[in-house]
Design a protein around this nucleic acid. Sequence first.
RNA 1: GCCUGCGUGGUGGAAUGGUAGACACAGGGGACUUAAAAUCCCUAGGCGUAAGCCGUGCGAGUUCGAGUCUCGCCGCGGGCACCA
Length: 860
Amino acid sequence: MPAYAPAEIEARWQKAWEEAGLFTAKEDPEKPKYYVLEMFPYPSGRLHMGHVRNYTMGDVIARYKLATGHAVLHPMGFDAFGMPAENAAMASGGHPKDWTYANIDTMVDQMKPLGLSLDWSRMFATCDPEYYGQQQALFLDMLEAGLIDRKPAVVNWDPVDMTVLANEQVIDGKGWRSGAEVEKRELTQWFFKISDMADELREALDGLDDWPAKVRLMQENWIGRSRGLQFAFDVVGEEDKQIEVYTTRPDTLLGASFVGIAADHPIAKELEAVNPAVAAFCAECRKGGTTAEAIEKAEKMGLDTGLRVRHPADPDWELPVYIANFILMDYGTGAIFGCPAHDARDLDFARKYELPVISTYVPVDGEITLPEDGGEAYVPGKEEEVTYVKLLAGEEQQTGLAGIDAAIAWAEEKGVGTGQTKFRLRDWGLSRQRYWGCPIPVVHCADCGVVPEKKENLPVELPYDQGNEPIDFSIPGNPLDRHPTWRDVPCPACGKMAKRETDTMDTFVDSSWYFTRFTAPRAETPTEMEAASYWMNVDQYIGGIEHAILHLLYSRFFARAMIKTGHLPEKSAEPFDAMFTQGMVTHAIYKSEKGGRPVYHYPEDVTLEGGKAYVGDTEVEIVPSAKMSKSKNNVVDPNAIVSQFGADTARWFVLSDSPPERDVEWTASGAEAASKHLGRIWTLSDKIAKMEEEAPGQARGADDETLLREMHKTIRDVTLGVESFGFNAAIAKLYAFTATLSKSKASPGAQREAIMTLAQLMAPMTPHLSEEVWTLQGGEGLCAAAPWPVADEAMLVEATVTLPVQINGKRRDEVTVPKDMPKDELEALVLANEAVQRALDGSSPKKLIVVPGRIVNVVV
RNA sequence: GCCUGCGUGGUGGAAUGGUAGACACAGGGGACUUAAAAUCCCUAGGCGUAAGCCGUGCGAGUUCGAGUCUCGCCGCGGGCACCA
């Protein structure tokens, strides 16, 4: 018998599947459809174990659904625009396009040996002009439908690289690449009007039952709905001037002691123009970093403007107006009223500037030191009961929430303000001053203004060269800005020479609709309604938790926008029926120290012995379960694993041990164990095949029944495991059944039935080995195409059951009885039990609990 | 600070309120071998010779029965964050 040789086997079966066209998605009205999708990768050029785990999970589902008679769509593509390609071009002088497509080729070559059941005929990359041209068409439709806005926005500007930076790219107030001090600049940018849909996007989360609760919650917090009161303070002496504020705690209105405005508030800007002290202060405020630590450390700073406003509840009560550094212009109205007694931040501020502290309520239960007496600010929960010490709207004692409602009602009745719901979610700025992205298809004309490009002119394709010269990516700024032949075009409206928009789209746009494009990847329109109606929605989406907020939220917005513009059916407002967030693949770091600096050792240089790690004779530190990182020398290359053990081993290992939503640690010993197990199955299959030849047609005995009962239980458990993302538990059952089978004395026929079923149950995880076993045992056609085994209910019912016998809830013994033994007989049997007799010691039990088929509990 | 999730052997982890520790790794013992590797078998929560006792972060509670439900602590992780 030849040894288990995955390299040869796997290539052969991958070819067989391809020739059979098994994974080409075909619309079939006779079958239920199933669309399973893993988040498509960025073509970094390097497949990592996280990809392998992600795609293997999707593949298990896809293969299982195929075997259960579904028309399956399981596509793959590449999220191919973005900064790394430009950075690579800057670093090594190549072209982002060449770099990207070369990487895609490499990654496809790395993915194919994994034996994934992908429909490669639908593959595309978002940097294909055929894709981004349709994205431009979508942009134009959305623009026309009023879903897109153009407005000024404050951005982080890197003056050296001459580009806008995302918040994450600003480190300690400096550009991440250039190291230059980042400036705040106001630029006119394009925005998707996602905030208009904030409430809808929030409410629809409730319907996403098959999403992780955690993801729904993260989205809900991100959208950040709050209810409060918006009202205006009249400025003393300037009767036409008012300051609008928004508050979620209008119940504390009588505790107001100042009004604060942001440095970018219109009134602050007005004062800034005439008062150098104000100008200096505002400039100082704008400098502040945006990082968490910077905010933590930043001291509350304020400047008295000299303006005074009237309290809405008492025209004789005047409050000072401060410009303060902790007030944000882009939330609410950019102005607040400060209530030091009930807000920790306002209390800090009030103490620093010696402003009054006025408690408006105190807790019903418990004693506190009032903030005016040096205590902390008292902020009750919305359900907490409070006693009012100052009355605004007739309240005396009620919950915080009722107080808020009463205060809003009071304000509305008096005509002071209105109750309003606000959201934290802001519009999605999509403009990027970069080359390697989807060009925004508009033209700026001196006469006509901003003019959308004509659809027949799409795609607005990125220029590869600059005339006859290659584009120089080493010059700071956007190459499209200094590309006259691309930039200068006739106005689509009047025909006069005008300038093309040189900004490109945020790469999140590319990934917000790709899953719809897979339903008709070569269509001349963004989607085809018929195909989209058939395949949408994505039945199961799988990806990392890092995309829990932005990518999924943007996709949900896009689905709604595509319905409004006629590119998706109504049913697809929520495009992902079920979502699963998988954990990472981690690996230990082997660390030592040399000259005070850490040294990271490659796993292949490390010897493991008795739970300790050595390099040569020196023990090194093991840091378990660390994220794989090139700089820590703990990256495991999937291709190396596939060449060493085969794809089936890699697939089997990443699914075993840890539950899919948690991290799994890659260990060499674990991978070897997986490989050995697959080898054992190979050997077992061979043994069973020979047994049949040597002793055909033996009668089935009791051993057959035992084996087949175990087989049907395994079918039930594995099926359940696969359907509920319990892959690790399913694999444990498969291990157990393999052990049962290898020890079984059942007839050759029964053993063959068992191993063929085992092959089928393993096929979603180890498809190549399964085909091999299937064929050897005389299975017809491809194992991957064979119908999924169904557990026989009759075989799941045992004739006898073993019941644990508990005394006072602790297990003391067990009895094996016929399954349907009458209750009184069972009771008698239990009472006669030796352990029970001993515990009873002559007395009679206080209580006897019998749960049929489960347990017996004697209470003494 | 607010919101959240999680604490089970040496390790990863099983367990519809019903026999805690399935399955796997690492460990220990053995068979085969001159030896090693490979393979196979046995063992394995702790204490105890044993009967038995104790055990799911800690403390209470509900229940005939709690890893699972409730409350309060402690510890670790994730998300958001000068958001009014």
